[in-house]
Simulated scan of single mutants.
Amino acid sequence: MTVAAKLPHNNPNVIPLPRHPMPLPPAASADGPNVAHAPSHPAESTSTTERMLSTAPTDSTPASHPDGEGDQGFTATHGKKQLAVKWGEANIEWGWVALPRIILEKQHALGLSSEDINIILQIAQYWHDPGSLPFPSKARIAKAMGVHPRTVQRRLTRLHELGFIQRIERKGGPKGTLSNQYSLAGLAERATPYAEEAIQERERQRSETAARLKRKRPKTQVKGGE
């Protein structure tokens, strides 16, 4: 993922996914009703920016996943070199995007379809830094997904109505309206309770494992001399 500044991620449950970054669109057609209005300041720069490097904390004791699968892949340090080993140097050099793991694990519980997740990923890849909301056009998202722009419009409307995303209208350009900005704050808020529950369950399992190992530890016997 390309960003304007280095953004450290200190959450081991953030999954880095390689992606193919494209230049941000200079303008797009109106994105429909039910959108908020952005301030009348100039739009963010669409010039090429530096790619994001993200490092998750190292955990020497891999957690045990509730379904029995280990978490080694998520607790290891995710620096650029480690990602290149996993995905290939060229793929990571071109860019990658991070998405909280809990959103993928709980997409059904959240009520998100596979198309919704795809659109969220498409939006997330243009989220350059926390202070600059992404604004890819529906046409660009549709082209990447191989669907009609109206399909993207319908899914965006649903995600907006359910509170997962907020569409923010931008004014300007030759036609008077630019592509919408998108905030994913609602999605993050909805996913947080699931993440907190998962963390509590992980800590409970770690405590149980530590207690079980302690019980199995043999006692040291000292033989006294006569």
Results as ranks from 00 to 15, higher is better:
96 W>T: 15
97 V>I: 15
97 V>M: 14
98 A>P: 12
98 A>H: 15
98 A>T: 13
98 A>I: 12
99 L>N: 07
99 L>R: 12
99 L>M: 15
100 P>D: 12
100 P>S: 12
100 P>L: 09
100 P>Y: 10
100 P>I: 10
101 R>Q: 11
101 R>D: 09
101 R>N: 12
102 I>V: 14
102 I>R: 02
103 I>S: 01
104 L>H: 07
104 L>G: 08
105 E>K: 12
105 E>A: 15
105 E>N: 11
105 E>Y: 11
105 E>I: 13
106 K>S: 05
106 K>F: 02
106 K>W: 02
106 K>L: 03
106 K>Q: 09
106 K>A: 06
107 Q>I: 06
107 Q>C: 10
108 H>V: 11
108 H>F: 10
108 H>Y: 11
110 L>F: 07
110 L>A: 11
110 L>G: 08
111 G>R: 07
112 L>C: 02
112 L>R: 02
113 S>A: 07
113 S>L: 00
114 S>F: 10
115 E>Q: 12
115 E>M: 13
115 E>T: 13
115 E>P: 05
116 D>A: 04
116 D>G: 01
116 D>Y: 00
117 I>S: 00
117 I>C: 03
117 I>R: 07
118 N>T: 14
118 N>Q: 14
118 N>D: 15
119 I>P: 01
119 I>M: 01
119 I>V: 04
120 I>G: 04
121 L>A: 09
122 Q>N: 02
122 Q>I: 00
122 Q>H: 05
122 Q>S: 07
123 I>A: 03
123 I>H: 04
123 I>D: 04
123 I>R: 00
124 A>E: 05
124 A>N: 11
124 A>H: 09
125 Q>K: 14
125 Q>S: 09
127 W>H: 10
127 W>K: 09
127 W>E: 04
127 W>D: 04
128 H>R: 15
128 H>V: 15
129 D>M: 10
129 D>G: 12
129 D>L: 10
129 D>Q: 13
130 P>N: 13
130 P>R: 08
131 G>A: 08
131 G>H: 12
131 G>C: 05
131 G>Q: 11
133 L>W: 06
134 P>D: 06
134 P>N: 06
134 P>Q: 05
135 F>P: 02
136 P>A: 04
136 P>Q: 03
136 P>T: 02
137 S>H: 00
137 S>G: 08
137 S>N: 00
137 S>I: 01
137 S>D: 01
138 K>L: 05
138 K>P: 03
138 K>G: 08
138 K>N: 13
139 A>C: 06
139 A>M: 08
140 R>C: 03
140 R>K: 11
141 I>Y: 00
141 I>G: 02
141 I>H: 03
141 I>Q: 00
141 I>D: 01
141 I>E: 00
142 A>S: 03
142 A>Q: 02
142 A>I: 01
143 K>F: 08
143 K>T: 12
144 A>M: 01
144 A>C: 05
145 M>N: 05
145 M>H: 04
145 M>I: 04
146 G>I: 09
146 G>T: 07
146 G>L: 04
147 V>S: 08
147 V>C: 11
148 H>R: 14
148 H>A: 14
148 H>Q: 15
149 P>I: 12
149 P>L: 13
149 P>S: 14
149 P>A: 13
150 R>Q: 14
150 R>H: 14
